[in-house]
Design a protein around this nucleic acid. Structure first.
Lengths: 232, 232
DNA sequence: CGAACAGTTCGCCGGGGACCGAAGCGTTGC
DNA sequence: GCAACGCTTCGGTCCCCGGCGAACTGTTCG
């Protein structure tokens, strides 16, 4: 017989209103920061820290630390499925599937999302790879924009040169993607590029979150500018 | 968004070691009495009462009161499936399916089980119907064994006549089955009949519980004695 | 009727855990 | 360098809830 303590301990993870709210929020498949979850659940950040520790320790969530941020997401699609199974029992069954099915949301997120302020996910990695293979980004010694890269940003994308002025923030920075496990372009250039993609409606945000979707126009533009194809 | 309180409240039902032990015990598909569950979980009966109230109120269990007993079982196969999904997450996944899959156990239980000391479930109802259609049981005015019924018990089944002596316990009694929702034969005659079936190895108990299974010999015997067929 | 038994109600106790605010730490950005 | 920011650690408070036993209700059985 399965240990009753194990079941009870697992259930206890969800048996708190705050932790439940956090898990339900994460059901959208996105990674949230600890502060966002605290605000969403309506508790102090210090309280959220403890809850996240428990949820991660219990295997429901995983974390990815980047800088001063603590990104948290559901540990695996199985957790999402379990949560949806439970919530499906709670509602009289009216809506068959609420919002994005987690696997779908997860895939959408893997495809494309913003990381802080630049492009990440499979899309971000693909763009980074294309920039590299076309000689606009040099990954041989860290991450560095080449002269061609700078020209491309200003002339092709129309980024104002003073928007790329050197500052404390590096122009190009490698940011490790936690789903693709490969670096993508961060830093000032990554932010400006992402900004441009959004304002030109090459990308649209899915819902209120970090997930983004390539528009038909965006698909065409990336094919023209970077010879990128096969973007889902 | 689904209400976090709802999820938390539901999870809280399982977030207690005692309640978890009760639910896991009930995963065998059988109905247990409150006292049995209290002993199994190692708590006082008064404590068990409160837990069962909560589990029933939360929709995880259903109860069927009979006399001084409170029979409790999982509310529906969905609950069993949910419990198995959760426990499957907890164990590293070694055994693919632990014991009887709940749906199977549920079906086995529906097919045949003992109710207190007599035969119930689909099998009990089928036997009762057969006794009625062959003129051995009269359901027109309550439940009463006919003379043919008495003779059948003593001559065909070999029940000693003094084992059927009138006492405070009625000879034949209608007992409402809570899965089939139809009456089956209880009372002294029901108990003696069930006893005989078991000693003659027409029935065997499945595991340590109340579920019973018809043996090949039993199938043959019931076909001969009552013209009963199709007992899966 | 009275004894045995299953279950419930009630009052009480003790511990775990959810919460906050203040202080501290490391990162980011000017 | 300093300020802002995200997060964590630490003490302290409060309350919920699981546990028990004793007394009570209702059923079974001789």
């Amino acid at each position: 017989m399965t240990d009753a303590s194990g079941l009870a301990g697992f259930a206890a993870l969800l048996a708190d209103r705050t932790r439940a709210a956090m898990c339900l929020a994460l059901l959208d498949g996105r990674a949230w920061t600890a502060g966002e979850l605290a605000a969403h659940a309506g508790v102090a950040r210090s309280t959220a820290t403890g809850h996240l520790d428990r949820l991660i320790g219990g295997g429901l969530l995983t974390e990815a630390r980047q800088g001063r941020h603590r990104y948290v997401r559901l540990a695996d699609p199985g957790v999402a499925a379990l949560l949806e199974d439970i919530t499906a029992r709670l509602e009289p069954g009216l809506p068959p599937a609420r919002g994005l099915r987690a696997a779908t949301a997860d895939a959408a997120l893997r495809r494309g999302r913003t990381c802080y302020d630049h492009l990440a996910g499979r899309l971000g990695v693909a763009v980074t790879d294309a920039l590299t293979s076309t000689g606009r980004l040099d990954q041989s010694s860290g991450f560095a924009l080449t002269d061609e890269g700078l020209t491309w940003l200003t002339d092709q994308l129309g980024v104002a040169p003073d928007q790329l002025r050197a500052s404390r923030r590096p122009l190009a920075r490698a940011c490790l993607d936690w789903t693709e496990r490969r670096p993508h372009l961060g830093g000032l250039a990554g932010a400006r590029m992402c900004e441009t993609f959004l304002t030109r409606k090459w990308l649209t945000r899915i819902g209120s979150g970090r997930a983004v979707r390539l528009t038909p126009a965006g698909r065409t533009a990336l094919h023209t500018l970077l010879n990128l194809t096969d973007l889902d």
